[in-house]
Nucleic acid binder design. Structure first.
Lengths: 123, 123
DNA sequence: CAGAATCCTTTCGGATACTG
DNA sequence: CAGTATCCGAAAGGATTCTG
């Protein structure tokens, strides 16, 4: 499988497809949860860490970097002692919230139905 | 890190959080693309495979099973020779489309801005 | 055609220890 | 406080071969 270069029907490199790009972000498993946490307001590194107890510092740092890199969050360092760092959604990050919350609502609305389907499914 | 049991602020087991549940599904990286493909109408296994060239048969089969298991798609076998199998969205699968398309639109709308942010980011 | 089974490489991500 | 660095086991996922 895996050819040298893969193109979609429009001739665009699949890896550069914006849809996949966003999907890969959701796929990052933690990034979305971080965005949702920051939706409530700016947070310090340790605050995010406490809000999401089951993410290691390693992954938290990496996820925050990814989001910063894509312009979804802004990282601000305050030169205090010891230093504190604040993370906040950018305008673009804020703009992601409505569609994201739409998905969350769907998830909650169909939670039971999915659980039921799973139960009914016997390989 | 990784305690015995992890709870969110509401006291619910994090692993059972519906939000994470859906996110984990989208996180499967391929499932969403399959749903989008089936949104255009029922498709045979080979048709989906051709529409998504960069997914191996192994992963396609697995992803289709996952979606079927959660009741998002329906699998119908026609006892022809050789047999053909049709996949189609269920009502619940259809209901996922609006929020999903909302996210897709966001992705396309911010495609350039994200690319720009990436370029500007010099780690 | 539509998979199932096997093998094997790559990536994800946790644990731990260390730094300015 | 907010990371960085290293190690390593677990899981994802591609390639290939086989089957009804």
């Amino acid at each position: 499988m895996l050819q040298e270069r893969l193109f979609d029907p429009q001739g665009r490199d699949l890896a550069d497809c914006p849809v996949r790009h966003v999907l890969d972000h959701l796929a990052a498993k933690w990034t979305t949860l971080i965005v949702l946490e920051l939706a409530a307001g700016p947070r310090r590194f340790s605050q995010v860490s406490k809000a999401l107890p089951d993410i290691s510092k390693r992954m938290l740092t990496q996820s925050l970097r990814d989001l910063e890199r894509d312009g979804l969050i802004r990282r601000t360092v305050f030169p205090t002692k010891p230093p504190s760092v604040e993370y906040a959604l950018t305008a673009m990050g804020q703009s992601l919230l409505p569609p994201l919350l739409g998905l969350i609502e769907w998830a909650q609305a169909h939670e039971v139905q999915i659980a039921t389907a799973r139960q009914a499914y016997t390989g």
